[in-house]
Nucleic acid binder design. Structure first.
Length: 138
DNA sequence: ATTCTGACCTATC
DNA sequence: TGATAGGCCAGAA
């Protein structure tokens, strides 16, 4: 998968161009979302990562919000993605309601022996997985 | 066109 | 230290 130096800007430009050429295809953020999925798919069982870490590993430090947005599309897009392994900066299950109820997400994590610090907060110190450390750069 | 909101984060007070 | 303000970009109203 070819990932270039300035992924964010380039993604925007590329999406804008392709939208002009092919208005019906490929929503603007498709690339961004796709790359988010690629990373989420690599989160090991029993570990979690955060929106911010994913954004940073994509080269866009401020894109955390868009990561959340991308995951929101997952329900309709790629269903097999372990998106329950993505939590917010302090380990809270901020996306829990998108599973129907936070308990569903919690159950999935507990089933993988993810350590919890509180009912709806994982212990990041013990299970954080940093995408940047696992993804070798070209 | 404009405004508001959001599975967020960092910087600043 | 805890709180707020600002930034990000896509969609909905």
């Amino acid at each position: 998968m070819p990932i270039a130096a300035a992924p964010h800007r380039q993604g925007i430009a590329l999406a804008a161009a392709s939208r002009k050429d092919r208005p019906q295809q490929m929503p603007a953020s498709h690339h961004f979302a796709q790359r988010v999925y690629d990373i989420v798919a690599q989160i090991p069982r029993g570990r979690v990562t955060t929106y911010g870490h994913i954004a940073r590993s994509l080269g866009d430090v401020r894109g955390a919000r868009m990561v959340g947005w991308a995951l929101m599309q997952v329900d309709d897009d790629e269903r097999d993605l372990p998106c329950h392994r993505v939590v917010n900066r302090v380990g809270l299950l901020s996306g829990g309601w998108h599973f129907g109820h936070p308990d569903v997400m919690r159950g999935l994590l507990l089933a993988e022996n993810v350590p919890f610090r509180d009912d709806y907060q994982v212990d990041l110190d013990r299970c954080l997985w940093d995408p940047a450390s696992e993804e070798p750069e070209p």
